[in-house]
């Protein structure tokens, strides 16, 4: 079984943000303003929490003023505002929420499921493509989409699923034979009682995004 390189996810240099709050399997990560444009819904982040490394899938972007009232300079636009107030970003919150789907141990073994909770201010990192692959393979290195069960448990949303597939299309493509990959996907999503409409949409989206419709 291949492992992920947890050592590459440490220090503030490559971090995209920090854990701000935890509510069950949902984490809020405050992103560094300059990294905010890099992170999208469906992306996979890894949190360095010492021994364990929780892995989350981004399900929401949050960007708002830090205070409820006060600094709302409308009709200026972002670029003009930055010229007038170079430190304006400090007055905003750039955050994402994410659903915990897996965790890696200190040796880099990935386990699907809820791991130990991270601490506040633990650094969060955008996962490298080659490490993401590990999330879609079981211990025998055959395709496995069990993480979808955790993702959809935290956020039952067909659009989120679609985005997740789209953001990770290249990784999924590399998992192996398309029939084997599709079966793994199908098996995972049918293990949940998603309802016929959701199921149909999910299968359609998966086949379309992967280019396997015909």
């Amino acid at each position: 079984m291949r492992k992920i390189r947890v050592s590459r996810y440490s220090g503030s240099e490559t971090a995209v943000g920090e854990v701000a709050s935890i509510n069950g399997s949902k984490y809020i990560i405050y992103l560094y303003p300059e990294r905010y444009p890099e992170i999208s819904i469906g992306d996979i982040l890894l949190i360095d929490s010492g021994i364990y490394h929780p892995i989350i899938v981004v399900d929401e972007n949050i960007h708002r003023a830090r205070r409820e009232q006060g600094f709302t300079p409308l009709h200026t636009g972002h670029d003009e505002l930055k010229e007038i107030y170079p430190d304006a970003d400090r007055l905003y919150i750039y955050a994402i929420s994410g659903v915990n789907v897996a965790y890696a141990d200190e040796k880099g073994s990935v386990k699907t499921g809820f791991g130990p909770s991270p601490r506040l201010h633990d650094f969060a990192y955008d996962m490298e493509e080659e490490d993401k692959e590990r999330l879609f393979l079981d211990e025998g290195d055959t395709p496995n989409f069990t993480i979808l069960r955790y993702l959809l448990h935290g956020a039952r949303d067909p659009i989120l699923l679609r985005e997740f597939i789209a953001r990770n299309r290249d990784v999924i493509t590399k998992l192996g034979d398309e029939r084997e990959v599709f079966s793994a996907f199908f098996n995972a999503i049918t293990e949940m009682n998603l309802g016929d409409a959701f199921l149909k949409t999910a299968i359609d989206d998966f086949l379309s995004i992967m280019g396997w419709r015909e």
Binding site: E178, R179, E180, F182, S183, F186, N187, D196, L199, K200, I203, D204, L207, W212, R213, E214
Partner: peptide
């Protein structure tokens, strides 16, 4: 639901 099954290309059906 048969409409779900029938919507899956035949090459994938044996596998599932």
């Amino acid at each position: 639901n048969p409409s779900i099954l029938m919507n899956i290309p035949s090459r994938f059906r044996d596998g599932i």
